[in-house]
């Protein structure tokens, strides 16, 4: 029983972490319909950015993550423009080719990281890494609490941005009716580009969490393709609070399977849940019906 409680608590915290690394995809794939399979590669790239700043200047990884967000915002603007000009503008089978495009981008990022840093694992140092909080009989690592707090903050900030600002409302509207948006004097392509920039900027902070929670290696993105897409699809495309709830469900499921069947089963969970959701409730738990 204690073991189960332990697994659930750790699972919730792990889920919040998954939520933080998935929430950008909830914008780019969930709202904009861009098949962004390079999302986890951008995430790992951000971790290496945080690693460099932490290693050279001794700056706290979360602060380092904040520092690289403007850079990632610009990276997102450029990536979307490239995708739009080469694929989306031509319509019809943009979806399938888009996946190929982003897979290519992901591999390029992996290779660049390997060339620069090699295949060894890298980690960061901070006061909250490596220590635990003891409560009752449980030990909760501080780094997981940090992930929890950051995930909560990201969700709240993004939800407010999408509902309270003119640009945020336009981002939600662009997924629903682009031509109607043009009638309001809004250029839908500019809105999508901006939204993709935001989704990528968020990865600066998410990348910091990734390397805070565990050391990273260049091909780590592959483990997160299944997880991030599972979370976004399960949430129902485009719901921010839904993303966190879905991520917590995944986190708890992984954590329980890990304690009862062993670690080797954990990676299968996300794909199994992804398939299950697509079969039973394709619009997601909180999703839109198209």
């Amino acid at each position: 029983m204690d073991l189960l409680l332990d697994a659930v608590v750790i699972g919730v915290l792990l889920g919040c972490f998954y939520g933080a690394v998935s929430i950008g995809l909830s914008v780019s794939f969930g709202l904009l319909d861009v098949p962004h399979v390079a999302h986890p590669a951008f995430l790992v790239l951000a971790s290496y950015g945080v690693y460099i700043i932490n290693e050279h200047y001794g700056i706290d990884p979360l602060v380092a993550g904040l520092l690289i967000t403007p850079l990632f915002f610009v990276l997102g603007l450029v990536a979307y423009r490239l995708y739009y000009e080469t694929f989306e503008k031509r319509g019809t089978d943009a979806g399938v080719r888009g996946i190929a495009f982003f897979f290519g981008v992901a591999f390029i990022i992996e290779v660049l990281i390997i060339m620069q840093f090699g295949v060894d694992q890298r980690s960061v140092t901070a006061t909250y890494i490596g220590k635990s909080w003891r409560i009752a009989d449980m030990r909760i690592p501080y780094r997981m609490l940090v992930a929890f707090a950051v995930a909560a903050a990201l969700t709240i900030v993004l939800t407010l941005y999408l509902s309270r600002t003119f640009m945020g409302r336009a981002i939600r509207a662009v997924a629903q009716d682009q031509e109607a948006l043009r009638l309001m004097g809004v250029n839908p392509i500019k809105v999508k580009q901006w939204a993709f920039g935001i989704a990528t900027a968020v990865l600066g902070i998410a990348g910091a969490l990734l390397i805070i929670v565990a050391p990273v290696e260049p091909t780590l993105d592959r483990a997160y393709i299944g997880r991030t897409f599972c979370v976004v699809v399960m949430a129902g495309l485009g719901s921010m609070s839904g993303t966190i709830v879905a991520a917590i469900i995944l986190g708890v499921a992984e954590s329980i399977v890990l304690t009862s069947f062993g670690a080797s089963w954990a990676p299968a969970i996300s794909f199994a849940m992804l398939l299950g959701v697509l079969a039973v409730r394709p619009q997601g738990l909180f999703g839109r019906r198209s």
Binding site: F166, R169, A170, Q176, D177, A180, G185
Partner: peptide
């Protein structure tokens, strides 16, 4: 300003949010 055929509202946004989008341009704000 145009009221398009078939209304073309943003169905998953609230009434107020739809109205606010009508005032997106700087001059309209």
């Amino acid at each position: 300003a145009m009221v398009p055929e078939g209304r073309r509202l943003f169905p998953r946004l609230t009434v107020l949010e739809n109205l606010m989008l009508g005032a997106f341009r700087k001059a309209a704000r």
